[in-house]
Simulated assay, not measured.
Amino acid sequence: MCKAEFLTVAKPSESLYTVKKSKFISNVVPIKDNEEAEDYIKKIRKKYWDATHNVYAYVLGLNDDIQKFSDDGEPSGTAGKPVLEVIKSNNVKNVLIVVTRYFGGILLGAGGLVRAYSESASRGLKNSSIIKKIRCNAYKITTDYNMLGKVQWELNQRNIIISDISYTENVQMNIYVPIIYNIDLEQLISNITSGSALIEWVGNYYATQ
């Protein structure tokens, strides 16, 4: 059964955190599958080819179906696992975090490494902005310009998500109705426009509210 909603990140980000002269660069990115995750890890390793470590962790699936991490040479349990725990504790899905470390010459110890990688990952998530995705029924509505304002007002009153609007001979808009809403959209639009609007169901999607 598909979840009605989940948390993820809005955008990729890069963050710098320095502790005892070691630099920790956190790259956070939303991902769709294993292939995309592994390709991005390779990209980061190539970009920071001279780094001491490129640690990563990612979670895929709305039930955390795939969880993967790597310490990349750091002592076991001090790097990749803490980054993974940051992802899980924030309950975000379909997210990859790569933390690149440039060693500053001062040993941090096991506890210091755990704290540093956790803090770097947390800052990265914050900079990527955690957002909520809601499972919706998607529709395309075509109406004339005279009805546009009324349709928009009625949809906004019900917190229905209005996406792209294109203005041609008529007005076309893509809208998303959260599945948890008990709304008969076709009947609603028909009532608003006296049956003049065209309503097409497109499918089920996760949209940002």
Rank of each mutant, 00 (worst) to 15 (best):
L107Y: 09
K23H: 14
V95W: 00
S22C: 06
N127V: 04
V55F: 04
W49R: 11
Y58C: 01
D50M: 04
K23N: 15
I175Q: 01
N170Q: 13
P82L: 03
K20T: 11
K150G: 06
D184M: 03
W49I: 13
K47I: 14
N127A: 13
K150I: 12
I179M: 08
N63Q: 13
C2R: 04
V19K: 10
V114F: 05
A79S: 14
S22E: 04
T100L: 06
T8E: 07
I25V: 15
S190D: 15
I66P: 00
V28R: 02
G111P: 10
K32F: 01
K133T: 03
S76L: 02
P178E: 07
K32N: 14
D64K: 04
G73N: 09
R115K: 15
I130F: 00
G203R: 01
S129T: 15
Y117H: 04
I165G: 03
L188N: 02
K3L: 12
G195W: 01
K42C: 09
V114S: 09
S166N: 13
N27Y: 11
N54S: 15
I161Y: 09
G112K: 07
S194V: 12
I189F: 03
G195T: 08
A4G: 13
K32E: 12
I189Y: 03
A51F: 05
V19E: 15
N159V: 04
D65W: 00
T18A: 07
L108P: 10
N170H: 14
S120I: 06
Y56E: 08
V86G: 06
V28D: 05
G149I: 03
I25E: 13
E35Q: 12
S120D: 03
D64F: 09
V9R: 00
W201E: 10
K21A: 12
K11A: 07
S190A: 12
